[in-house]
Design a protein around this nucleic acid. Structure first.
Length: 229
DNA sequence: GCGACAG
DNA sequence: ATCTTGTCGC
């Protein structure tokens, strides 16, 4: 029921995908939120090694309580290969299928990957943000591009990620003495807000709740289970 | 030219 | 991403 803009078709070659990213990047808007956040969604993909079947899922949480408000899962087929810098072309289609099944339209969406912390400033969170026309940001487990100084070891500390003299995101400590996660705005949100939301989704783990729950959901779906927790 | 490289 | 046991550190 949740709708999105069909900005382009997904049948492309890697070279065409890069050209398309150059086209789309001018539409991305990094700015403060315009509405308060009540619900936040987490997305993830899972699949079996050497197989093309993809299990995609989205979990919507109430921001203040982190309780699950809705979750949807879809089984699809990946047509695009995994190429660093082109992740959205592999996972995007399935995630949009899942998005279309949502009854609730989340106020903001967290993606498992980069926002503008990308070689062409259009990682999966930015690309998906343009499609769903909603505030979106990325919270990745590793770096794609950019350098940063190690943030202080206590949860809440962060240091800017820089690429070609530009601040593209933040290495954020979500848990004491544990490797940071890499947060970057995707679309219709700014870095400070993305950092704040990530910290507010604390469940005691390195990975924030939206993404962690979505990860559990898609893995349960892939293994043919019923419950995700 | 060589290495790095979200999930 | 996925395949997997034990193991080092707090």
């Amino acid at each position: 029921m949740a709708r999105f803009n069909n900005l382009h078709n997904w049948t492309l070659t890697p070279a065409e995908a890069v050209a398309l990213q150059q086209q789309l990047r001018s539409e991305i808007r990094i700015e403060p939120l315009t509405r308060p956040v009540e619900t936040i969604a987490g997305c993830d993909i899972s699949f079996n090694k050497f197989e093309e079947t993809v299990y995609a899922g989205i979990v919507v949480l109430q921001l203040d309580t982190l309780e699950v408000v809705e979750e949807v899962g879809v089984i699809s087929t990946a047509t695009f290969p995994y190429v660093p810098g082109l992740l959205s072309f592999r996972e995007g289609p399935a995630l949009l299928d899942a998005w279309a099944k949502l009854k609730i339209e989340p106020d903001v969406v967290m993606f498992d990957g980069q926002g503008i912390a990308h070689p062409r400033r259009i990682g999966i969170a930015s690309h998906m943000g343009l499609f769903i026309d909603r505030p979106a940001f990325g919270c990745a487990k590793s770096v794609l591009v950019g350098k940063y100084d190690e943030p202080a070891p206590e949860r809440g500390n962060w240091s800017p990620m820089v690429h070609y003299r530009e601040v593209i995101g933040a290495a954020l400590r979500t848990k004491d003495k544990v490797n940071p996660v890499y947060v970057s705005p995707g679309h219709l949100i700014d870095m400070e807000t993305a950092i704040d939301l990530t910290l507010r989704c604390n469940g005691g783990y390195r990975i924030p709740e939206p993404t962690r729950r979505a990860h559990n959901l898609v893995n349960a779906l892939r293994r043919g289970e019923r419950a995700a927790d």
